[in-house]
Design a protein around this nucleic acid. Structure first.
Lengths: 236, 236
DNA sequence: GCTCAAAGTTGATCTAACGCAATTTTGCGG
DNA sequence: CCGCAAAATTGCGTTAGATCAACTTTGAGC
């Protein structure tokens, strides 16, 4: 199901050269410590729409996303998918250990082809002890996510579809915005269906909404791609 | 705004006698340790609809609810209230420290008159070091809440009003269900408005829904009170 | 026991957005 | 380069549920 690869010497070097330490969620490690961490890691390359792990899987590892974007998804018995949140490079995910949970409670699905490091869950507590800042970083990550989920909840409870879509897109811009000559683009493939699963609506409503915004010159939307020209003008 | 009282000797004794250690979210403390913890605590008695703390307040303390129920509420600029979750006796709340957060991100409002202990946030890390199980307990608490919020999110995204209300009520039954000769009652005052704020709907819809269920004999609902006779028959 | 505000009910519109359907566009794989 | 499935658009009828409004019930406080 996952395309896991044991790390090669080549991979290690490449990662080190790519200044991976800047991506580590806890700064101030010397070169030795960084190397030690990476030695313990496994590399995962995951193609678009494939998963890093699935809801219910035994939580054997925790992850750090290096490149690409992913969505954390939960599926109902009825088969409806709901995108709970998105993860950007530099963020940890699959941190079931932070919740004393034995299994993953959601699926991590690649929004775009991606690269992640993982470590065995057994190392979690060791990392907290050995690396100053790791604890703080994970706490902050959890906090951010809780807030994010609360915001989403509030948005769903009080706003109507258009504003919910606007909110979702603005959040994606923050996490994955990339300047282009045309405006700020969301830096991974994103379908109308994806957006509908983030906002609890239908792809039809999303399509209508984007069409309208395009008519008004607020966005430029193509197949699997959204570029925002006037973020300020989106309905709050 | 809050009715804080410095702990009196009487209060301490009363709490100890009330087997408070069973309520502490981390078991296996001997009597000495328990006493030491309680010595450091402040008691808060809060009347119905008053708050333990407000969104945005500096997070100076973390809390343990001893008695009563409370709701964690967030308010939008427009003034809409959304109930994010409910807290039952024995649960901690205001645990901003677990999120490396300086301020509380939501308001803790007493659903029924209640009693809580609090400790200065500075003690958080000390507790984690000194009391085995505290760390685990907080992690589990955070995990439970994240799951709970996800469930709510999914419910809001995919179900329609009737099922959302049913879900909300079933969750309250788990947390605050009390057997009566009439069925299982929710053990604190709960208005139609409260339920609508939990489910992102209007008090009118909630009223209509409860009326219907009452006609069908599923519930018994009075002013500020809901008793469920056939939990299994509520729409999933 | 009376008053009044808070809580709840219930009917009558009205509308946002869903569901359905038909059609077009896009770009990957052969 | 073609064929085809995935993605997107758009119109139309329907409806869940919000909104508006009138009214009733409840119980706490004077």
């Amino acid at each position: 199901m996952n395309q896991r690869e044991t790390m090669t010497q080549f991979g290690k070097e490449a990662l080190l050269q790519a200044n991976i330490s800047e991506l580590l969620p806890f700064a101030s490690l010397d070169e030795d410590q960084t190397r030690k961490m990476i030695d313990l890691a496994t590399v995962h390359r995951v193609k678009q729409n494939k998963t890093y792990f699935d809801e219910g899987d035994r939580a054997e590892n925790f992850f750090l996303l290096i490149d690409g974007f992913l969505r954390i998804v939960r599926t109902t018995k009825e088969g409806d998918q709901v995108v709970v949140l998105h993860i950007a490079p530099g963020q940890m995910f699959g941190i079931a250990k932070a919740f004393e949970s034995v299994n993953y409670t959601a699926t991590a699905q690649a929004a775009s082809e991606g690269l992640a490091l993982s470590w065995p869950s057994e190392l979690w507590d060791k990392f907290i002890q050995d690396y100053p800042g790791f604890q703080k970083a994970t706490r902050r990550a959890v906090g951010t996510r809780v807030t994010e989920m609360q915001d989403k909840l509030i948005s769903m409870a009080t706003h109507q579809v258009e504003r919910r879509i606007a909110h979702a897109i603005l959040r994606l811009l923050e996490q994955a915005g990339k300047e282009t000559e045309d405006g700020v683009a969301i830096d991974f493939p994103l379908t109308r269906q994806d957006i509908s699963e983030m906002t609890g609506t239908t792809l039809h409503s999303v399509s209508r909404c984007l069409s309208k915004w395009q008519r008004d010159g607020l966005v430029r939307s193509e197949r699997r791609r959204v570029v925002v020209r006037q973020p300020e003008s989106l309905p709050v």
